[in-house]
Computed example of a mutant assay.
Amino acid sequence: MKRLIATAALILVPWLASAQNQTLECRVVGVHDGDTLTCLTAQKKQLKVRLGEIDTPETKQPYGTRAQQSLSALVFGKDVRLTVQDTDRYGRKVARVYQGKTDVNAEQVKSGSAWVYRQYLKDKSLLNLEAEAKAAKRGLWALPEAERMPPWEWRKADRDKRQAQREGTATYTPPVKDETEAADVFNCSALKACKAMSSCAEAKYQLQHCGNTKIDGNRDGIPCEALCR
């Protein structure tokens, strides 16, 4: 059994590695933001691609539109080569993208159109490109510091804001007390007149549990009709 497992592992590991480092060629037919595009293979298969190891400003962030324009200038309508690193939870291919000899991911960082996405970083040379762009105040690095929020922090802040708005608009509906709970609130220590009742619930309790029939003058089972009608 151990030998079978070892053999299976020898077969599976290279297969997984090749699947992650798959190379694909396609033509870019859409650019959605600074790090996401759609391309079409020769077999007419449409692929959604997320540029790996980088993160660009969201569309609503400062420089978001400029980052999208930068990527579009590099790849839109052109043939590209993808080195696939992964498939994300949205089904997008996460890849390094090359247009001719241009490393598009690196070019987005170099032009100041993207941050290095440190959480998923594999190629540490991208950090040098980011440092150079920052020192030269290229692209987003020319913005005031207050406007240069990394997109992963911006997305978290946006999620927190929407959550707070949802919680702020929620209304609280108090639970309806059942008869057991009513017994904890009302008692039969005194038989009250209707004008002394605090609510219809108390009147019903007095009638049903205390035998206070005086508050049901017409004997229809509804006490203190001014309260309970």
Rank of each mutant, 00 (worst) to 15 (best):
K2R: 14
R3A: 08
L4Y: 14
L4R: 15
I5T: 11
A6G: 10
A8P: 03
A9P: 00
A9K: 15
I11M: 14
I11P: 01
L12T: 13
V13F: 14
P14A: 09
Q20C: 04
Q20P: 00
L24Y: 14
C26H: 05
V28L: 04
V28C: 02
V28A: 01
V29G: 03
G30L: 10
H32C: 02
D33W: 03
D35K: 06
L37R: 01
L37E: 01
T38Y: 08
L40C: 09
Q43S: 12
K44G: 00
K45G: 09
L47G: 09
K48R: 14
L51Y: 01
L51C: 04
E53W: 03
I54F: 05
Y63N: 08
G64L: 02
R66Y: 07
S72P: 03
D79W: 13
L82C: 06
L82R: 05
T83S: 10
Y90C: 02
R92S: 02
K93C: 01
V94K: 05
V97R: 02
V97H: 01
V97A: 03
V97W: 02
Q99K: 12
G100V: 02
K101Q: 11
K101W: 09
V104P: 03
N105V: 03
A106I: 03
Q108A: 06
K110V: 00
S111A: 12
A114Q: 02
A114P: 01
Q119E: 13
Y120E: 05
L121D: 09
K124T: 09
L126V: 06
A133Q: 08
K134R: 15
A135F: 07
A136G: 02
A136F: 01
K137W: 06
K137Y: 07
K137C: 00
K137R: 14
A142H: 10
P144S: 07
A146C: 04
E147Q: 15
E153A: 12
A157E: 11
D158P: 00
R159G: 00
R159P: 00
K161M: 08
R162W: 04
Q163G: 00
Q163K: 15
A164G: 06
A164Y: 08
E167K: 15
G168S: 10
G168A: 11
T171K: 15
V176P: 09
K177W: 09
K177A: 07
E179A: 10
E179S: 11
A183V: 07
A183K: 15
A183R: 15
K192C: 00
K192Q: 08
A193H: 15
C194F: 06
A196V: 02
M197E: 11
C200S: 13
A201T: 12
E202H: 12
A203W: 06
K204Y: 12
Q206G: 06
H209P: 00
G211P: 05
G211L: 08
N212Y: 11
T213I: 07
R219Q: 11
D220Q: 12
D220N: 15
G221N: 10
G221Y: 10
I222V: 13
P223S: 09
